[in-house]
Design a protein around this nucleic acid. Sequence first.
DNA 1: TCAAAAGTGTTAAGTTTACACCCATGA
DNA 2: TCATGGGTGTAAACTTAACACTTTTGA
Lengths: 229, 229
Amino acid sequence: MNSFYIEHPRFFVSVDCLVFGFANGQLNLLLSKRKMEPAQGTWSLPGGFIEENESAEAAAERVLSNLTGLENIYMEQLKMFSQPGRDPGERVLSVAFYALIDLGQEALEIKPSYQAYWFNINKLPDLIFDHPEMVDFALKTLRHTVSTKPVSFNLLPEKFTLPQMQTLFEAIYDRPLDKRNFRKKIQSMPFLVKLNEKDKLSSRKGAFLYTFDNMKYEKARQNGFCFNL
Amino acid sequence: MNSFYIEHPRFFVSVDCLVFGFANGQLNLLLSKRKMEPAQGTWSLPGGFIEENESAEAAAERVLSNLTGLENIYMEQLKMFSQPGRDPGERVLSVAFYALIDLGQEALEIKPSYQAYWFNINKLPDLIFDHPEMVDFALKTLRHTVSTKPVSFNLLPEKFTLPQMQTLFEAIYDRPLDKRNFRKKIQSMPFLVKLNEKDKLSSRKGAFLYTFDNMKYEKARQNGFCFNL
DNA sequence: TCAAAAGTGTTAAGTTTACACCCATGA
DNA sequence: TCATGGGTGTAAACTTAACACTTTTGA
């Protein structure tokens, strides 16, 4: 290993994860009780340090799979936060990621050491450092991204109903949507497959189940189709 | 200074700047000859290491003002690039930024030590490391951002003509636009001020000059106006 | 007087919005 | 049988896209 860069400082670099989950018509964010000083015991985004030979993406995946037991979670980098003094203990740069997971029926197995819990996005407790800023940034990005790419399906179970999906969008945008216009638009998308099954959990009549067909989406995209909701 | 995090590795963190400039109907990117090993003498994005007590944003501003002599350049963070091995010399994490500058008439004073030059965006030389990936990412982001926020004015002189602006958008999108539709849309925006002056440099008839009025834009935005081109 | 770039309007197609009732079911 | 949530269509307003000629001027 050479040392051309030796005169420059080195930094701790962490990742912080904004994990969104949708359940019972509510958009939720996963928070954990901080295990280390400073600010031990207060609420924060789950995170961890980047290790040698690990990309920021890999670190975020590691943190998330430790936390949730899940692999292959949808995840995107948001931004690096690097203000000196953002962590009063030490100089730490942090890369924020957001992740979308379906926390449908099976209660997510959270590793107990993490003391992580779901909070409704509108009822978050106080967070340490610049984590509130990260939440704002993530929410803005999420709102933009779900209207632009078919990522909202990561927040839904494999099979979902249109009322479920509309509720999800209403939770993300934090405003009601017109049912007929929403359904018209969604159903005009060339990748939604209507199944011959109904979900009867939330009404007597039952709502038809749908799935997202990624192959169809990719094909449509290659032919110039542009998702926008 | 405490040491709660001491067991974790520290990293060199650099910034790389994607500096876009518009001149003579061409969209250009600023590249510099690399001053240090590895790959000394090959083309790369201008960059530098983050120093103690400096945010990534401040480092990028420092690099840019050293390079161009300009302050208050429009700049946005793009993304952190952190693959192990992206810099074969040492483990370096890098935060990419893009900047937009007007390189209108007054030839930009580039500090000679940097050996930096403008390259047409479609005729870039080979770049080191993952810099080509950064260029792709920046271009995509630029295309999206100019259609969504009034940032294109940073690439134009204070006073500009509509043909100039259309050429700029054609250079960014790399496709021709319909003159009448473009002008109609631009002129419907509530922040463009038509001056009583003409620029006669590019035609005998002369084209009217306009400026961007940021106050008007902010006022319109507060009233729900949404830029989109 | 003419070459070269600036400027101008209309129509058709598509998209978005607003809006109210019937349907299927199990308790 | 009725309460509950699921499902459906249309018309008006607005936005986008396509398209060709006139104006101004200096050389």
